[in-house]
Every structure is written in structure tokens, then in C-alpha cells.
Design a protein around this nucleic acid. Structure first.
Ligand SMILES: [Mn+2]
Ligand SMILES: [Mn+2]
Ligand SMILES: [Mn+2]
Ligand SMILES: [Mn+2]
Lengths: 222, 222
DNA sequence: TTTTTTTGTTAGACAAATCTAACTTTTATT
DNA sequence: AATAAAAGTTAGATTTGTCTAACAAAAAAA
């Protein structure tokens, strides 16, 4: 079994550079908050365990197996964030630190129950995609509600403003993370928008709309 | 801050011998599943930190501060067990292993929210008392429902039989951990008992009653 | 009260994860 | 191409928690 430290290296290797850009020792060290020498030591160990591909002075990447482990940790991290946020009323900025610990709890049953309890959420409170039980993670283009096309259906995935007045107003309107929204209308006069949520239509200002992050469910679908 | 290992030593020191009997190096080592030499090393460190009282070749005990830390870990352990049991449908015997990990999560807010979410439970699924937020832990005499006096009020704290048929029958009757029960009657003919739970009276067999662990709420009260 | 058994301690070794300081390779700049 | 800068590596040290094997003290048995 992997140590917490090994799990953290894999997860951060997965997150740094968003899976695309090549990563080196120094960059990963800075990201992890340790010294390059420590990263170098750990890379040898992870290579030995066939979790990373790495040649001396070369770039670092995850193996298939390494990626699988990393995604599992990311999944747990984001499920716990969602749980803390939606069940225990943690704020957007409080969840990360605790999820950083909870992501290392070893219990397949617990993860599955958590997922089920939260009704299989697709996004965490920061709007990041939660990998499903198979480790699948659809790539997704986020935008603000202000930019959404009239008539389109979308999912609310995050807020940009974390102030109490804003958040109170959000919940007053019946909005919440992972809610399905439909843009009913946008008025040219002052940019006011009408949004349908849970069978009810509410009217919001453009300023408000700009602070709601969504994923379009119609865009890019055939 | 304490390491997980230090927390485990304190918790097990608290649990071994139920706070009464004096404990030595060998006994604690056996309880923790490590060698006496390891315990000896750790005791020096914990003594240094003023968490245990210990003299060479003497008996081991917790200081005030050590006891406080231990109780906090016990509290978290039992709250998590209760959560897993009552919210995520873990069985009686599955909860311990996961709680062993969750008890080390550092977040005062999380513990408080958990306690609130569970409605401040007094007992965990094994019938052990959950210390409250102040670290108070009333000593308590458990017995089976079969032994309870007619007319007395009590709290169901655990089951002795963990088989599926029994547990299904328990929930069918509307019984559950931390429920308040009243013994309405006991029939001399065959020992059948009538129990009031949630305003309803159900009839149970003596065999059934013997597998329900309770704490009397009337006994020992003035 | 000796002797034996149990209990507890110490020294020395080891694995994991980190660091510093010195060194090497690669890349960028002149 | 030579030099300077950046990136990456290594050796050796440190901390934490563990172990084994040898030793010492205390308790129990004879
Ligand atoms: Mn972590
Ligand atoms: Mn997140
Ligand atoms: Mn533990
Ligand atoms: Mn318990």
C-alpha cells in the first residue's frame, strides 16, 4: 500500500500542469513545498514501484498505474470537499485543508457511500470535475452564467465571490452547486437575466451572473 | 501538534485497563501490537512532552494534559463510528478499522459538525460512551434489555447479535442505537416483554431482549 | 534467601522522508 | 564556442518510529 506521502506526490504530479505540460524536479518541488533533492529521492522510489516514468535529467510523467492511483486520490479529495461544503456547511475556502487529510482514508466502501450520499456529484465546490468510480473525468469548459446562451441548459459548478452577502443571496434564490439551470431570457435593456432553477424562474443581475461559474450541458453535444 | 503515532499511544494508554488498572511497558506493547522497546522509546518522548507520568521501572499513567488529548481522540473515534454506522450503513464490525484512521483528522469544526449532525449521540455502536465536547464521560452500567426493571426508562446503546436477520428485525420494530425505550410490561407466563419506543409499544421475546444492550436512565438517579 | 522467571531497559541498526551543501548536466546568453 | 545561469543530482546528516539482541531490575518460586 502507498504511504500518504507517496499519494501526495502522485496527486500533485497529476495536478501540476493540468496533465499536459511536461514537469521537472524543481517545478514539482515548488508545487509540493519541498526541496528538489527530496523530489529526486522520491522519484527513484516511485520509479522502482512503476508509478512514474523518469530518466535522469529527463521529464517526469505518471505511468498508467500511477495515474490510476492519482485519480483515485483526486476523486476522494473532491468528494470530501463536496461533502464538507454541502453537508457540514464549510465554506469554499475551508474545505481544502481538511480534504487534504481525508483524501488518504483507506476504505473503498466509505468512498462509494460518500458518492451515493452526495448523489454522485459531478463537480466539487471549486468547480473541478470529480472523477467517477471508474476514474473517468470528462474534460469540461467552464464559463460564467453571464456568458451562457439563452435557451441553453447548464450546471452550476462554483461561485467566484465568496462573501457572505453573495452566498446568502445565492441560496435565497435557490441556487447551489451541482444545480441544473436554464437560461430563460436576457434583457437587452439592462442585461438582467431570467434563470430557471428547480421549476422556478428567478431574475438576476449581470453582476450576479458573472459570479456564478457553470458548465454548459448543451454546448459541444451533438 | 501530535503525530498519529503519539495520538495512538495516548488513546491506547487511556483504553487499556479501562482507566483503572496500572499498566506496564509489556502490556501496553502487546495492546498496541509493537515491541516493548518501542514503547519504552515512545514513553521517553511523551514524558518529555509532559503527556505521561513515568519513572524507570515504574507504572505508566497519563498526565492531565495527556488524558485530555486521549479523550479527544476517543471522542472522534466514537463519533466517526456512529456516523459510519448510522449514516453510511456500515455494520457494527466494519466501523472500527475506518474510525481508526478518521480519528486522526485535525479539524475542530469537523468534529463539532459531526456531533451536531448526529444529534449529539451519547453512545457509539459498541455501546461505549462518547465523551462530550468538554471531554466529560459519565461512567455508566450497561445491561441487557432482558434485565431491565418494568417501568424504567433506558437508552439502547448496542446490540449483541450482529446477524442480518436480527438486525433487520431490530429496525423493523423501530429500534436503533441511542433510542429511548420504556419497559411497559413483562409477562410471567413466557417472559415476553412490552417495550415502548417512539410512542409505539412493541412485544419482544426474552431471547430478543437479551441481545439488546441498554443503559438505565432511572437507575442510580436520585 | 537463593534461584528462576518475568518485566523493563539500552545500544545499535534500519527504513521513510526530509534537509543542506557541494557537484554535474543541460540550457540560455553573450 | 565560451560562459553564465538554471535545473537536476548526490552524499551525508537528521528525525521519527520501529526492530533485535543483550543486559538489568523486580517479582515470583523454590
Ligand atoms: Mn493530502
Ligand atoms: Mn477542489
Ligand atoms: Mn488510530
Ligand atoms: Mn467503539
Amino acid at each position: 500500500m502507498l504511504s500518504q506521502t507517496e499519494e501526495n506526490y502522485l496527486k500533485n504530479l497529476f495536478n501540476v500542469g493540468d496533465g499536459e505540460k511536461e514537469v521537472g524536479t524543481n517545478e514539482l518541488a515548488a508545487y509540493l513545498g519541498v526541496k528538489p533533492a527530496s523530489v529526486n529521492d522520491m522519484l527513484k522510489k516511485l520509479k522502482e514501484k512503476k508509478l512514474v516514468d523518469y530518466e535522469k535529467y529527463g521529464k517526469i510523467s505518471l505511468t498508467e498505474e500511477g495515474r490510476r492511483k492519482a485519480v483515485e486520490v483526486v476523486r476522494k479529495h473532491r468528494l470530501w470537499e463536496t461533502f464538507l461544503y454541502s453537508t457540514f456547511d464549510f465554506t469554499w475556502d475551508e474545505v481544502h485543508e481538511v480534504a487534504e487529510q481525508l483524501e488518504h482514508i483507506q476504505s473503498a466502501k466509505l468512498v462509494n457511500k460518500l458518492d451515493e450520499f452526495l448523489n454522485y456529484p459531478a463537480y466539487d465546490p471549486h468547480g473541478d470535475v470529480i472523477p467517477n468510480a471508474k476514474g473517468e473525468m470528462p474534460a469540461v469548459h467552464k464559463k460564467t452564467l453571464l456568458e451562457e446562451v439563452v435557451g441553453h441548459h447548464c450546471t452550476m459548478v462554483a461561485v467566484k465571490d465568496n462573501s457572505a452577502p453573495f452566498l446568502q443571496y445565492v441560496s435565497r434564490l435557490g441556487l447551489g452547486i451541482n444545480n441544473k439551470l436554464t437560461v430563460v431570457a436576457r434583457h437587452a435593456y439592462d442585461g438582467q437575466m431570467e434563470i430557471e432553477v428547480n421549476k422556478k424562474v428567478v431574475t438576476i443581475s449581470p453582476r450576479f451572473a458573472q459570479n456564478i461559474v457553470i458548465v454548459c450541458d448543451d454546448c459541444g453535444k451533438k
